[in-house]
Write a protein that binds this DNA or RNA. Structure first.
Lengths: 198, 198
DNA sequence: CTTGACCGTTCTCCATTCGTTCTCTATCCT
DNA sequence: AGGATAGAGAACGAATGGAGAACGGTCAAG
């Protein structure tokens, strides 16, 4: 059971790692907690390691690691169940944790901010963030990031029509774009999407 | 767990590959990080390879590959820029990394799967996952998880009208639900949303 | 095939950062 | 009062990271 100072220290370390992907130095912890010295911090970190919250690679800089338990907690949310209009929350059997890392990350992926409303009927709004997997081919019907004439990148639904490629907005206010296949280069395929609310 | 220089190096390599689809040379990394020498860079890249983040095709030029492990171990994606209909990808100054952990996680948050199409006009589709922050009050206009008569939980936009509360679907096919305030209990406020594509 | 620019690799030297330890002091809680 | 808890400050040695130079391999153009 950690003391109050230890608790604050542990919390800061967890947030720091979540933000920076690497552990803080003692001085950074001290600065973050408003301390002017790192003398006592060393004792707290040591105590946390003995209590099993942390592992320390002794002597190395930034040598603080979270234990597996603390780490698992850091990247997951409880997945409570399904929610629908007019129905109570219904538990999802066998699935009670949502690990964001597994859910959205993967090799050759990157993120893009969406501007404009051309994909609004597909539930992609202005300001959303989409996650794209870099690929140079895509199945018919997929939503892709496509480059036209090596100049303009757009997010559209792909339709292959023989030697023509149609880039179809999900908004009836915009017309489909139709090009010969050799003018369109696929940069990636939409694999995920996320949004935050203020 | 990489050191700070290693972490910056790895991040630069990820961005470079995401943009150019080929690995950078050591000199390019050095230039990108503001270094005048590549002597130490080689050590960092080597250390990253030993730690399993990279693979190196030894001797070959541009012989750096990212591993799957790197993407899963780091909790962020390169954020390349904005994308819009008919515009090239435009870099976002000062913001080049999307940290999922920081973006969506927080204390007192949980996830729910959405079924039904009652929020479709707000870009919330059947099968989406929403992230909810547990709270018992909410601002007017927020999207909330509300419990009516302690029985039915629904995801709706909240409108306060004096001692009445309106729960408004974002779908013109459904009517607003209007209750006296004492029959409606707010369970949480929508703070995030995510979706995966097959 | 030859050539030259480019690039990975290795080495040494040096400044800085950081973990560690120590002593001394202040605060809080039975 | 007395012990537990916490912080300030200083000092030391190890780890880290960068500069610069030199060597040899790779690759594409001539």
């Amino acid at each position: 059971m950690p003391t109050r100072a230890q608790h604050k220290t542990l919390n800061f370390i967890r947030h720091f790692i979540a933000r920076h992907d690497c552990a803080p130095t003692l001085s950074e912890i001290a600065a973050g907690l408003g301390l002017r010295s790192k003398g006592s911090l060393h004792k707290h970190v040591q105590a946390l390691a003995e209590a099993g919250y942390l592992k320390i690679r002794s002597g190395q800089q930034r040598g603080i690691e979270l234990t597996r338990f603390a780490e698992q907690q850091l990247h997951s949310l409880p997945l409570l169940g399904r929610i629908a209009a007019g129905q109570p929350i219904e538990a999802i059997p066998g699935e009670d944790t949502l690990n964001l890392t597994e859910f959205l990350l993967g090799p050759d992926r990157f993120a893009l901010r969406v501007t404009g409303d051309s994909m609004i009927d597909a539930g992609i709004l202005d300001g959303d963030t989409v996650i794209v997997e870099r690929r140079d081919t895509a199945d018919d019907g997929a939503i892709v990031v496509a480059l036209v004439d090596n100049g303009e990148a757009t997010l559209k639904r792909l339709r292959k029509r023989g030697d023509r490629i149609e880039l179809i907005p999900a908004n009836t206010a915009y017309p489909p774009l139709i090009y010969p296949a050799n003018r369109v280069q696929i940069q990636g395929v939409l694999v995920g999407q996320l949004r935050t609310y203020p």
